[in-house]
């Protein structure tokens, strides 16, 4: 059970449990707009769009974590984010991502089927969102 006035924040990727801590507030980029989660938030399940999760604790933004989409479940005392990819914003390597982006753009040109192009497009969107955040 969470401490009084705190939200139990959990960030999970398929590979591992990344974060599990009690914080003051979490701001999650929901599919239909950002939402803040404070203790005793109503029950909510939301899709998450690529963006930044802000973790507020002690009156300041403690962590900023980039997620490439996923799902979020909020209960009165818990906020669980199931992320596909999660990277702390300060760890985003601009040069590396720009290189990847370049490769992917070439892939789009080479893509044969409609589906293959859509798959690459989705990956490009994630990378672009990442860059926008790192700027």
């Amino acid at each position: 059970m969470a401490e009084e006035g705190k939200v139990e924040f959990e960030l999970v990727s398929p590979e591992q449990l990344l974060v599990s801590e009690a914080v003051d507030m979490v701001v999650v980029p929901g599919a239909e707009g950002d939402f803040g989660v404070l203790p005793r938030h109503s029950l909510l399940i939301s899709e998450v769009r690529p963006g930044v999760i802000q973790v507020h604790d002690g009156g300041a933004v403690k962590d900023r974590i980039f997620v490439a989409g996923g799902f979020c479940e909020v209960t009165g005392e818990r906020c669980t984010v199931l992320a596909e990819i999660a990277v702390p914003v300060e760890d985003i390597d601009r040069a590396k991502i720009e290189a990847e982006l370049k490769d992917l753009r070439e892939d789009v040109a080479d893509a044969k089927s409609e589906e293959a192009r859509a798959a690459v497009d989705a990956r490009i969107k994630v990378r672009e969102a990442m860059l926008a955040v790192a700027a």
């Binding site: 929901g30 599919a31 239909e32 939402f35 109503s42 029950l43 909510l44 399940i45 939301s46 899709e47 799902f71 479940e73």
Partner: peptide, 11 residues
């Protein structure tokens, strides 16, 4: 009962 964002079916 949960709230859903977007609709249940879509999620």
């Amino acid at each position: 009962v949960y709230e859903y964002e977007p609709e249940e079916a879509e999620i």
